[in-house]
Design a protein around this nucleic acid. Structure first.
Length: 930
RNA sequence: GGGCGCAUAACUCAGCGGUAGAGUGCCACCUUCACACGGUGGAAGUCGUAGGUUCGAAUCCUGCUGCGCCCACCA
């Protein structure tokens, strides 16, 4: 029997997400539901002919060390909603997961583990340490993906990658070699941001700037050969004076003209340093004289270069003073600062000390104060054109956004991106770590030259010497993750995956990694894909080089007090734990309903409670429906399963509520589709919520109770028709809801089909599109009916009719007759009315509710509370008069009549007429009350 | 030093040129045979502040106040 609706399994009275979620999460993975086979050309053409497309989305790879937080869950909920939606629309939807090896973070994690065993990584040696990290990764890595599985993310697990996988490492190496050969990767000694704790260079982006109250010290440098004369410099970092090689002043600064070319005696040392002129110096800052320390300050480094000065490095990699610092050697930088100041003071060389707000850079990862340090590193020359000519990487990346090949939502971030891109510096990509992609460069002991190669070389490419050793540095993690959009699809090998899935459609991510990752992907993606021909052999145009066509920047998730969640503050809301308490669907719905583009989310559990109630509401609607399906079956009435799965269609002579609910389903579905197309998750969520609860449950289900009479002598054909519409609408509503609440809808959808569903999952069915059937007449008729029912309910309350008591009503139509009387059964049931008496006049002294269309009274012996009613009416009257006054004022204004659009004027005229009528009615009612 | 965002009902947020909406909370009534994680009715906002543009402003512009964020090589 091809029937629908479950009777086989009684649904529990209250929805218990815990009872179903693990089961489905596990099943979706086991059934390989979301795996995408790379289509061949024929299949692809077929897809496109049908009006569908490939939808590829890359999961921003979480760190292997990561645990899922609310930000991830928001990000994943948004991606999952979109992916499920696109899949259900018939697109080939691929959501690709993976994890990032996260250089510093992971290395730190394992080092901490070693520390507990009383060891350091140096004790193990590089090879053993790296092996240890791999082992850690195998044991603990990727826990976050397991959490993701539990939350039902519809990703293709068969394609899961790790950024240190073999084929991805090949891509990293290829990219490095190509850029090096182009002269776009270079090695050199420059000032970089150095973290003394991590003992590695970090990029500009990995430095967090903090303002703090500090001191600006003035130090007197004796002028050689001029006893009693000094040049006073100002500095915030006195300890670096030990590495000074000059003092610079502005060339036009009159105060110092006489010292130009003279020598100064560097205090605390026996070195003499020159006074030089450089335009970079601002005469109005400090004393106008700057100590020049090329090894410890990027500006000084620049001055040093311009003037051919040496660099004296006075610190080691742990920010302790080195041998160059003489007596201060071995001291930590702050201890050295203290001692330097004391010694200067003792020698009378310390001048004024001023309070000074300065910004200090801290290591993003460990919060240690970063030291600008001269060291030899590898850089990507992002602003440089390749040898053969053409645009630089940065320029390509700017054009991609400027010319609209990549659309960023919300738009304001496009500006932020371009602003950053316009001011970008070369990217330091080397890290002094052990965990990561080792730089494929070999140093020759014989000729000192560098060999960069795809395959590990045995000999120097320049002199042939076998005495070569590999570079010890590894690459910045973002170098490999920046390549992901090309590398996951097989680049640099020619690959069908690349042809089909590149460019990806969308990137959903947080603002915090816009520069770190998004910008780098755009640079590297555009750069490397431009040489990959299209699948038909044609040259790739700029628009097809981008790594993704759209970027959606999502909100930050804050706690209910709008504070950033952090372990330190202890205000972290655990998503999986929260999902267990309220149900994953409820948490997802909370996030979706608050995910308005461009605003942050203050996550509140109160709201989640509300959506748990919503889930329960859906559950119970299902129970009610299944119960009736059972009842019908008992009477030999069975709904054909084939009627389900599409948009319900109703006959023109079907009951009003059936035509209405189907019309509503169509219009709401259209709205949801439109909202999702523009990332307005909150609108989509509130639309489905209002539809299901406010329309389907509150009105349709209540009316349907009138129709589901399957007993002998009842209109069984009508009952069956209504039951069919009910089931169809519910099934369609489940599909509409399913991207937002995948677990609950999956469970109920299977129940609708009594355990014999037409597909393995609701996720594989089609999304309601909402173009099928509209019915304005049904919507407006129903709206009038609702107005009447609400008015009667309110009157009953006023007059004091008990909840269970039914009472007659008196009704008078103002103009359009009494069309709603045709639905007296609905009025009787929903407003608890016995008889409906059409009347020409309203009775005096009884409460009246009036609308422009009708007046209505409840006939009941118990009189109303006249003073309360009079108060209400007075208030009502005041409101109406205000509305009227405002309308009249505008309608009297010739400028308004001349300039306002016609429909506004017409609307206002209508409002004016209706309000006048209402005022008249209200006044009369007040008079009658006395 | 630049740049950006936000201020709307008690709370959390929508709305972003035509006279204010939702959820939660609150008040009253109702344990009616899907659901008390429920139903019905109700109270609640001079849309931060001062100007301006407009026939019309919560909505656009400017100043101010208060929060928050990002970027930045003045020692």
């Amino acid at each position: 029997m091809e029937d629908a609706g479950s009777g086989s399994r009684e649904l529990p009275r209250a929805y218990d997400p815990a009872a179903i979620e693990d089961r489905w999460a596990e099943s979706w993975v086991r059934e390989r539901l979301f795996e995408v086979k790379t289509p061949d050309e024929a299949r692809l053409n077929e897809l496109r002919t049908e009006g569908h497309d490939v939808f590829t989305i890359l999961l921003p790879p979480p760190n292997v060390t990561g645990r899922l937080h609310m930000g991830h869950m928001l990000n994943q909920t948004e991606m999952d909603i979109l992916t499920r939606w696109r899949r259900m629309r018939g697109d080939l939807a691929l959501w690709l997961p993976g994890t990032d090896h996260a250089g510093i973070a992971t290395q730190m994690m394992v080092e901490r583990q070693l520390a507990e065993e009383g060891q350091q990584r140096q004790d193990l040696g590089r090879e053993a340490f790296v092996e240890r990290v791999w082992e850690w990764k195998r044991h603990y890595g990727g826990a976050i993906l397991e959490q993701m599985k539990r939350l039902g993310a519809s990703v293709d697990w068969s394609r899961e990658y790790f950024t240190m996988d073999g084929h991805l490492s090949v891509a990293v190496r290829e990219a490095f070699v190509r850029l090096y050969d182009e002269g776009l990767i270079y090695r050199g000694a420059y000032i970089v941001n150095w973290c003394p704790r991590c003992q590695t260079a970090i990029s500009d982006l990995e430095v967090a700037h903090e303002e703090q109250q500090g001191d600006l010290w003035e130090i007197r440098y004796r002028v050689v050969g001029a006893p009693g004369e000094f040049v006073t410099v100002a500095t915030t970092r006195p300890e670096t004076m030990l590495g000074d090689v000059a003092v610079a002043v502005h060339p036009l600064d009159e105060r110092y003209q006489k010292y130009l070319g003279r020598k100064l005696m560097l205090p605390l040392t026996d070195r003499e340093i020159p006074v030089i002129a450089d335009e970079w110096v601002k005469s109005d800052f400090g004393t106008g004289a700057v100590k020049v320390t090329p090894a410890h300050d990027p500006n000084d480094f620049g001055i040093g270069r311009r003037h051919g000065l040496p660099s004296i490095d006075v610190m080691d990699e742990t920010a302790h003073m080195n041998a160059e610092a003489g007596a201060y050697a071995g001291l930590d930088r702050y201890a050295a600062r203290k001692k330097v100041l004391e010694d200067l003071e003792a020698q009378g060389l310390l001048g004024a000390v001023r309070e000074h707000v300065n910004t200090i850079g801290k290591c993003d990862r460990c919060k240690t104060v970063v030291e600008p340090r001269l060291s030899t590193q590898w850089f990507v020359a992002v602003n440089q054109s390749p040898k053969a000519g053409g645009d630089s990487m940065a320029e390509l990346a700017r054009r991609a956004v400027r010319e609209g090949h990549i659309r960023i939502t919300p738009e304001q971030y496009a500006k932020v991106y371009l602003e950053w891109m316009n001011n970008i510096y070369d990217w330091c990509i080397s890290r002094q770590l052990w965990w990561g992609h080792r730089i494929p460069a070999w140093h020759c002991a014989a000729c000192k030259q560098i060999t960069v190669a795809r395959e590990d070389p045995d000999n120097c490419a320049h002199c042939g010497s076998a005495e070569i050793t590999q570079e010890t540095d590894v690459l910045d993690t973002w170098f490999s993750s920046g390549l992901l959009p090309v590398s996951v699809f097989g680049w640099p090998q020619p690959a069908r995956d690349f042809d089909v899935f590149y460019p990806t459609q969308l990137l959903v991510t947080g603002f915090d990694i816009l520069f770190f990752w998004v910008a780098r992907m755009i640079m590297l993606g555009c750069w490397f894909s431009k040489d990959v021909p299209m699948s038909d052999g044609s040259t790739r145009e700029a628009k097809d080089t981008v790594p993704f066509r759209e970027v959606y920047i999502h909100a930050l998730v804050l706690d209910a007090e709008r504070q950033k969640m952090s372990k330190v503050k202890g205000n972290v809301i655990e998503p999986v734990e929260t999902a267990k308490r309220y149900g994953t669907d409820a948490v997802r719905f909370t996030l979706a309903s608050m995910a308005s583009p461009g605003t942050n989310i203050a996550f509140s559990e109160a709201r989640t409670e509300g959506y748990r109630a919503f889930a329960n509401k859906i559950w119970n609607a299902a129970r009610f429906i299944f119960m009736n399906v059972e009842k019908a079956r008992g009477a030999g009435i069975v709904v054909d399963r084939a009627a389900l799965g599409a948009m319900p269609m109703v006959a023109a002579d079907a009951p009003l509520e059936a035509r209405w609910i189907v019309a509503r389903l169509n219009s709401e579905a259209a709205e949801v589709n439109a909202a999702l197309g523009e990332y307005r998750f909150h609108e989509a969520a509130s639309t489905v919520y209002q539809f299901f609860w406010g329309a389907f449950c509150d009105w349709y289900l209540e009316i349907v109770k009138l129709r589901l009479d399957f007993s002998e002598g009842a209109d069984r054909a009508a009952a069956k028709a209504e039951l069919t519409t009910l089931l169809q609408t519910f099934e369609a509503a489940l599909r509409l809801l399913s991207p937002f609440m995948p677990f609950l809808t999956e469970e109920l959808w299977h129940a609708v089909y009594a355990g014999e569903p037409p597909a393995k999952s609701i996720a594989l069915t089609r999304y309601p599109q909402g173009k099928a059937q509209t019915d304005d007449r049904a919507e407006s008729d129903f709206a009038l009916l609702q107005e009447l029912i609400v008015a009667v309910r309110a009157l009953r309350k006023e007059v004091g009719v008990g909840e269970k008591v039914a009472a007659p009503i008196r009704i008078r139509a103002t103009r359009d007759g009494l069309p709603f009387l045709a639905h007296s059964d609905i009025i009787r049931r929903l407003a608890r009315v016995t008889e409906i008496h059409p009347a020409a006049t309203m009775a005096e002294g009884a409460g009246v509710r009036s609308t422009p269309q009708f007046d209505v009274q409840v006939i009941y012996e118990k009189k109303i509370d006249t003073s309360a009613e009079s108060e209400r009416l007075t208030k009502e009257l005041a409101k109406q008069e205000k509305v009227l006054a405002s309308a009249e004022k505008q309608l009297r204004n010739p400028a308004f009549l001349a300039k306002a659009p016609e429909h506004i004027v017409e609307g206002l005229k209508k409002q004016q007429a209706e309000t006048r009528l209402l005022i008249e009615k209200t006044r009369k009612a007040l008079e009658e009350l006395g």
